[in-house]
Simulated assay, not measured.
Amino acid sequence: MSRLRFTRSQAPSGEELLNTLVKLTGDVLDGIKLQQARVELATALQRLMLPSELPQVPGLRTSARYVPARKGLDIGGDWYDAFTMGDGTFGVAIGDVQGHDAEAAAFVGQVRTALRAVAGGTTTDPGAVLARVNDLLVAMACGLFVTCSFLRFDASAGELADARAGHVPAVWADADGRSDIVLDAGGLPLGMFPGEEYPVTRHPLRAQGAFVLLTDGVVEGPEFPIERGLEAVAKLVGAGFDADPDLLATEVLKVADLTGHDDDAAVVVLRYDGRRG
């Protein structure tokens, strides 16, 4: 903002004061217009980063929530996606892109497109999907990386298979009130090194239960360790696994308020009803 200084021997005239006021007002209006443009850009990019709705799948109820970062532009690197794959099974992904800017938002779009392309045509095995997407991102040389968990829900087989690429563990709960953190083996984030492998863990779904995916913005803060956050989510999901998925997703996201974080955060809830397709 412009500053004008006057000496005691040079008192400003009325015209000079008016010109100064006009200049300062113009600076303020320019700043407001710039901020409005930044907000509109952030809103548009955020809308493109996330699906408008999640598909409906027999035997599975789903819900997702997202909150933007608490400072700066409302553009975050957290994202999720869900879609029907080439063999009729259901794919769900959640991830966190390095960075919080327009470049990170654009990279989210590339990752989602790559996941859908691979899972829609060549393979639906979660580990193979992540491996091929990783090699594709490395070949594109974007200079960014992304953590990701990718799941395949197979209603006919009664199975949930998942693979992780450097992402936060999921949380599960069943009808008996048991709950825990899913500490399955995983690989490095996508886009770092070619030829990475991502082990797949298969979870038989013999009864009703819930599987909750999240990003680190939900469970980790400056002075709040991720282990503590995951334990809080596991306890919450265990107590309310049979709640409406929308309500459960909202309650899980509230854990972020305990962490003192300023990052964005995302949650995806999968409620399995125990029936085979």
Rank of each mutant, 00 (worst) to 15 (best):
A106Q: 08
F107Q: 10
V111E: 00
R112E: 05
R112L: 04
L115G: 05
R116L: 09
R116C: 04
V118W: 01
T122E: 13
G127C: 01
A128G: 06
A131S: 14
V133M: 04
V133C: 03
N134G: 02
N134Q: 01
D135C: 02
L136W: 11
V138M: 04
A141N: 15
G143S: 01
G143Y: 00
L144M: 14
L144V: 00
V146A: 15
V146C: 14
V146H: 01
T147Q: 10
F150D: 08
E159M: 12
D162H: 15
D162C: 11
R164G: 04
R164M: 06
R164A: 13
A165C: 12
G166F: 07
H167A: 13
H167C: 11
P169E: 05
A173L: 09
D176I: 05
G177I: 12
G177V: 08
R178K: 14
S179M: 02
D180E: 15
D180P: 03
I181C: 11
V182M: 15
L183D: 11
E196G: 11
Y198I: 06
R202K: 11
P204N: 10
A210P: 08
L213A: 10
T215H: 13
P225G: 09
E227K: 11
G229K: 02
E231H: 05
A232P: 00
A234I: 13
A234R: 09
V237M: 10
A239P: 03
D242I: 06
A243M: 05
D244E: 13
L247H: 04
L247Y: 03
T250D: 14
E251R: 15
E251D: 13
V252G: 02
V252S: 01
